[in-house]
Design a protein around this nucleic acid. Structure first.
Lengths: 342, 342
DNA sequence: CCCTTGCATGTAAACGATTACATGGATAGT
DNA sequence: ACTATCCATGTAATCGTTTACATGCAAGGG
């Protein structure tokens, strides 16, 4: 049987003080005399008291939880970010809820309105306009932070990788190897990452005076299936590009797989470069040259930003949140999937 | 600004009834007259009332959340299971917390004792004995369910794949192709899956009269690194096995990668079969023959079981939980990584 | 016509913490 | 020595629900 739940009142009786004093001993120890604080600490130890979060949260008008919105839990790219976020909240008596936007067609503002969460980190920049509007009118917009992705034209704070720079590095690397005919498999239409990476790619290609062909920009959506489709498109081309820059590692895997099945060798016939640097990229055959995102930093900074935003939202002096965008650096990781054109 | 929070009292006033009636209208509508229920519903709509979960949970002595313990969020194997669990709880006004056992060295019973969670699904069978003892003495053991993994010798309910059968199918498949010299890369020492899969493998190998050599059982730990190590061990062997059964798909990827780098072809020189059937297995090159686990079913059943356990724990008539173990079937998926020996 | 029964609703006491305000004793300033 | 100040602690209201118990009305049985 569960031992009788011990309340703050029991601790107070044991220590010979009032409940207020016990509460203070726990949250503001410096307000108390050394001796009473010690007495309370002993009483806590003796009784085995644990604070009841539901009660505390009710009284303090907070939820004690934040929500992390993930576009696709199945994509291992997000795991490290989630771990970093969880870790960051570990000390704060705030729990971390994780939801997949794909599976959950739930009404997001509800989480706020029900007092289930104090804030939200969205790794999904594709939230419906209606959701954003609802956040605004519910007055909870200031307790939302974006990470990795963001919403164009919104002023909500965000942490993101330098996607343009990543795309630039990718093209530059291929160019350095001697490639001139570079294709690009994009992310899904409308996605902010798609836009940023394609823009960076086009800019660098132009800067280097490389040829540009419309059919070398192949629409994808970060999924394995889209990598396969892109490969088939390339296989069917009369003059194939000598290198392909994929918008994500997952896409690159499926692309390489399909190419090689068709007898197109990687990197001998076509070089492939990805984006993300997930764990498997090192282990794929051939191992994948890619742009590394600092997922740990992304997660940590997002968590920290959210904590600040929540604190600010509670404060009376609105700090008029400056348009906060934090850029996290990216890095080229050279492996076997890229080489000089045959 | 956040609109003034509307309480149940406001709804009551609007509807011209008492708070009790409003509460009943929300949770036990049939207790009320058609007309008053309708009046309350209208009032709710007009005021935009949302129940405050912290208050409700406090009063009802529940947490409104469950915890899912994952051995390694980075392994995409777990994603579908998590999604299935989340989905199962979607209707129940219970939130789902996800924690990685690796990153969080936190004290697990604390979650229960703090009233932060009502129950737990552990995908990790490697919980410390001290934790299990703590659960027991805290009286929360009956609100724990295991999925995928389990704890040997414990009576806690669990949902699991038929791992022995999976191993059997793998060996049988290789045997059908003509293989006789079959190696096995195991999971981590002490893990229940390791034991089950190895046992199934050994049993079937014996049944078919296949040769057994000690150095063909290679210790791994489900990680990419261990797949690489295993491959190096195999490469160094004087007489290599003609086929390798890996305890997980991830291990198989790293193993194949390292083999092929060393010029050992898969499947021409060595066939490789995995376990799990994660999304990437279809897309690796060569695509991976493997044992499919029904991850969706595993997640759904675990969630359901936990709900039942929680309900039972509240009930006065202890249903003396029968030793509940649910077996989920597995299936052989044949792809390119296995073939008749050269 | 009265008494019992039952049903729909109201009243108010929990749930377990935090915290504004009150209190009283010690210290210091004049 | 008297009062103003300050600091440590206690008292009690409060957070927003749910629910045991009380109430009063309608119906039905004798």
């Amino acid at each position: 049987m569960a031992q009788k739940t011990v309340r703050i009142r029991d601790v107070a009786r044991e220590a010979g003080v009032s409940t207020a004093t016990v509460s203070r001993a726990l949250s503001n120890p410096d307000l108390l005399t050394e001796s009473t604080r010690k007495a309370v600490e002993d009483a806590v130890r003796i009784t085995g008291y644990r604070v009841n979060h539901a009660a505390r949260n009710l009284r303090m008008q907070r939820a004690g939880a934040v929500l992390v919105l993930v576009p696709n839990l199945g994509n291992p790219f997000f795991s490290t970010i989630l771990a970093a976020i969880s870790e960051s909240f570990a000390g704060t008596d705030t729990s971390v809820l994780i939801a997949d936007t794909a599976s959950g067609g739930r009404e997001l503002t509800g989480y706020f309105l029900d007092g289930r969460i104090d804030g939200m980190i969205s790794l999904d920049g594709g939230l419906a306009q209606s959701d954003l509007a609802a956040f605004d009118s519910a007055g909870v917009a200031e307790r939302i932070v974006f990470a990795c992705e963001w919403v164009d034209g919104s002023t909500l704070p965000s942490v993101r990788s330098d996607n343009e720079e990543g795309a630039r590095l990718a093209v530059q690397h291929l160019h350095d190897l001697g490639h001139r005919d570079i294709a690009h498999v994009t992310g899904p239409a409308g996605n902010v990452l798609t836009k940023a990476r394609r823009a960076g790619m086009l800019a660098e290609r132009a800067r280097l005076g490389l040829p540009s062909r419309d059919d070398w920009i192949i629409r994808g959506d970060f999924s394995l299936a889209s990598g396969r489709d892109a490969a088939n498109r390339i296989i069917a081309m009369k003059d194939r590009p000598s290198a392909v820059f994929c918008a994500s590692d997952q896409v690159a895997f499926a692309l390489m797989s399909t190419l090689m099945e068709a007898g197109v060798r990687v990197p001998e016939d076509i070089s492939v470069i990805g984006f993300d640097d997930i764990e498997l990229s090192k282990v794929y055959t051939p191992s994948l040259t890619t742009i590394r995102q600092d997922r740990h930093a992304l997660g940590c900074r997002a968590a920290q930003l959210l904590l600040e935003q929540i604190a600010a939202a509670g404060d009376p002096l609105a700090p008029a949140a400056p348009d906060r965008v934090e850029m996290v650096g990216v890095e080229l990781v050279t492996r076997q999937s890229t080489a000089a054109p045959g």
